[in-house]
Each structure stands twice: as C-alpha cells, then as structure tokens.
C-alpha cells in the first residue's frame, strides 16, 4: 500500500458521495456524504489501512491552509459589506460567542444529566 492507494480511497468516497447527492437531489454536499460513506465503510471493515491513515493525517494537518483561497474571495464583496457592515459584524461576533456558549453548556449539561441518571 502506498500514498496513491490512500488518496484513491478518499477521492473515490468523494466521487460516490457527489454522485449520490446529485442523483438523490440531497441538500448535503458530496464531500460530507463521502465522509459518512467512508465512516460507514470503516465501521464495517475495521481499522483503516495505513496508507489511508497517512493521507488523511497529511490533509488534516494542512486544513487551515485549504481555506485561504476561498477567504481571499472576500475582496469581491467589499461594497456589499460596506453597506451592511454594522449588522453583519455585530451579528457575527454575538452569534459566534452565543453559539460556542450554548453548545458547550448543552453538551456538558446533557452529559451531567445522563451521568446523574446512571448513578
């Protein structure tokens, strides 16, 4: 097994995911469906082959870099952002903070609730 096999496995999952999403008219993007397919495959198959693990670790190590090209696209929208800048920026800051807090409290609360019920 080498890196090509690992990359092939990942691309094949994405391709099948993309095809399924389009054929079934699902609102979910192909790569997310591909991830669920690969996850289901691994649950059935057992531990991932070393090549697959190596490729995926390499990809995930550089995850942040992969967002740069889309992020630079903000330069196309300077005018629209200038018009609604206050609403957009306050909404982003408030909503991001509130979402982090709500999610952490909800998960911690649910876990504590279940632990108490199990005791």
């Amino acid at each position: 097994m080498n890196l090509i096999h690992g990359m092939l496995g990942i691309l094949a999952c994405q391709l099948v995911g993309e095809t399924l999403a389009r054929a079934a008219g699902l609102p979910i993007p192909g790569p997310v469906l591909g991830m669920l397919l690969l996850f289901a495959f691994l649950l059935w198959h057992g531990d991932p082959p070393p090549a697959l693990r190596r490729v995926s670790e390499t990809l995930l190590n550089y995850l942040a870099l992969l967002f740069v090209p889309a992020g630079v696209g903000i330069m196309v929208h300077f005018q629209l952002i200038a018009r609604d800048w206050l609403a957009i920026s306050v909404a982003l800051v408030v909503s991001t903070a509130v979402t982090l807090i709500a999610t952490m409290l909800a998960l911690r609360g649910m876990l504590a609730l279940r632990r108490r019920r199990n005791d």
């Binding site: 999952c13 994405q14 790569p31 991830m35 690969l38 996850f39 995926s56 990809l59 992969l66 889309a70």
Partner: peptide
C-alpha cells in the same frame, strides 16, 4: 483552486478521526 480543491478530500478524511 488547486489548494481549494483539497477541501473536499480533507472533509472525507475527517472520517478517520471520527472512526
């Protein structure tokens, strides 16, 4: 776009830490 394209495979790769 060559960098941007790798977002798709990286999303699929998240299946491994999930597993």
């Amino acid at each position: 776009q060559f960098v941007h394209f790798m977002l798709g495979p990286a999303t699929v790769a998240l299946a491994i830490p999930l597993y």
